[in-house]
Design a protein around this nucleic acid. Structure first.
Lengths: 344, 344
DNA sequence: ATCAGCATTGTAAACGCTTACAGTAATTCA
DNA sequence: TGAATTACTGTAAGCGTTTACAATGCTGAT
């Protein structure tokens, strides 16, 4: 069963050359005669030899691998981000080591240590969950950045070896809220399920917009959903409960498309007419927005753009270039059927 | 910037012991006095030392890492599977290396080579896309299985170091189709988007059921959707086109919830009453089935169960136990609003 | 006092690769 | 013809661990 694994020595012997030459062939080094190259390649093919990446990594002290961390790869948005990272990295000769950490701080720390001990060349933290409102909880990120560059998607932390690419969540929610207000909605409810960095930005965007619009908001208008991010029924039920408890709202701006969808379902169950009696705006412009009828107006923060940009910055950093520490993109509001915003 | 990385030698020096002793502490070997252990641990803590996994891997010839391959991590179902694998493996001390290969055979091969050169201890192929109807295309799997155990989720290939865990797709589609027929549907359309291994099983399930029900089917009743698996509009449009071209159907059984959702949208656009005039059954029982109204009846093939089972088999294999080569689970048909099946 | 036996620690080889440096043969130039 | 150059190839050190084996220092029994 466990036959002797083929090493560079076997190849060198078979091809009648030294291991250095084999190595040169493997690394496309120029100083090899066409003749020997052929012999070596033949031996490799014949034996089915694959180089041992440990040994290689040991010497070079790099595995050409990027660690990707995310709280939950089954989240629609995060999964998409991971997909783009994977793709871009692979095209540039890097592999990726994915860790789904869950939402516990200690697990995040453990995962980072693990990646570092595996000698990743860089770390990408996918999603704002990694950055806490309380700056002091973000220390672990600094720790990591002492060893390798740390990239943040949709979150911001200032630091020496830390690079951030994000969408301006404050701005997009601000604009969306404003538009809802301008299109005649007085009682806008903010429905959210995360208190992460970007969660805070979004919330502030909402608050600021309402304030600038001269509308007072009560804390009840901030509904926090604390369940699974797939539990559409639970999400609707919570809105229903809030309504029965006397809360009035004729529009929902959600921090997430799933929440938005639940709001649509809630409104339809109530018999409201969307978008005439009731408006909904989601976030991420994921396929979920196309699942119901009417389809959901949503904020598109352009994952693909963000991810590609982030990857190119990382690659730049890795090859020693000077790169911007912070890049912010503006999101688009994609209007579909759950709003009537542009009434001009 | 690039300060000397801390190695086991630094620790040994700082703690005044040999590197072997440090190594023993790191590996919780018993033969270390409490006193020295403390000194070593102190030194480790002080320097922030993390062991180099390459060096370790080189010696042990294992990285305690499992390679996970999937065509597309942003697919809802696959992402979920990956999530469970990740979680289970981590809990058992294994890390995972994820590769999203896309759907091209050559990329799959390349990814496998890569994983093997990284000395993964095993490979999990997530999704039936890895197994082709033409057995000859599956050779690359045998190649991999010569080096490490290969696990297949939702696909079957026989081979020496290959283990399969799947849901009985033929059976579930057969039963679902039968139920549709028994509940009065004559013109059932089969809507699919993959010709993978399980795609074939499903199709055969459909054909066999129709045959056993004594209903003749024409090839037009097999609609293959060839676009993005998020393109709900395109999916609906294709059904619309088929209908305009004269195809009659009063039920759709889809190989996937997204397709099913598109069928619901199609039917609703047509003004059909679901489930009275028109029935739909999806596959995977994902959250998409809860997105529209009525919610979609779907086949639940229990990813979580499958994934956990697969992982436990893999762990068994890795620890040298004898394990079943093939495990098949039966799926459940979860009836919701798009059908009226159990009319007894 | 001596020594077997034990607990603990140290030494050094091995893991498979890259690469600086050294060596060799062939070619060119004067 | 000999020296310098070029083109290729080989030798061996080093990367940071683990671990078999050797060495040390104690313990208590004789």
């Amino acid at each position: 069963m466990k036959e002797h694994t083929v090493t560079i020595y076997d190849i060198s012997e078979k091809a009648g050359v030294s291991i250095a030459t084999v190595s040169r062939v493997l690394n496309n080094s120029s100083n090899v005669s066409e003749n020997t190259r052929k012999k070596v390649l033949a031996a490799i093919k014949e034996t089915g030899y694959t180089p041992n990446a440990f040994a290689r990594g040991l010497g070079l002290n790099t595995m050409k691998t990027i660690g990707i961390l995310t709280a939950d790869s089954s989240d629609l948005y995060l999964a998409k981000a991971i997909y783009y990272f994977e793709e871009e990295l692979r095209e540039n000769g890097y592999d990726s080591l994915l860790c789904c950490t869950g939402y516990e701080l200690k697990d995040k720390k453990a995962a980072i240590d693990l990646l570092i001990s595996k000698k990743v060349d860089g770390i990408i933290l996918v999603g704002s969950h990694f950055v806490y409102p309380d700056a002091c909880d973000n220390k672990y990120i600094y720790g990591a950045s002492e060893k390798v560059p740390v990239m943040l998607l949709n979150a911001e932390v200032e630091g020496d070896n830390i690079y951030c690419v994000s969408s301006d969540d404050h701005d997009s929610v601000y604009r969306a809220t404003m538009k809802l207000v301008e299109s005649g909605h007085k009682n806008v409810l903010y429905y959210y399920n995360t208190t992460s960095y970007s969660g805070h930005l979004k919330e502030r965007g909402f608050r600021d917009a309402m304030k600038d619009a001269g509308i007072e908001v009560t804390e009840r208008q901030f509904q926090f959903f604390d369940g699974s991010n797939e539990d559409i029924h639970g999400m609707s039920a919570q809105l229903e409960k809030a309504a029965s408890a006397g809360l009035k709202f004729d529009a929902v701006i959600a921090s997430d498309d799933t929440l938005a969808l639940s709001a649509v379902k809630y409104a339809q169950a109530k018999g409201y007419n969307i978008p005439d009696d009731f408006s909904v705006i989601g976030y991420n412009n994921s396929m979920l927005t196309n699942c119901c009828d009417p389809e959901i107006t949503s904020i598109d923060n352009k994952v693909e753009t963000l991810c590609k940009h982030l990857t190119s910055i990382l690659l730049g950093v890795l090859s020693g270039e000077e790169m911007p520490k912070k890049t912010v993109f503006k999101a688009d509001i994609i209007e579909k059927g759950t709003t009537r915003l542009n009434k001009d």
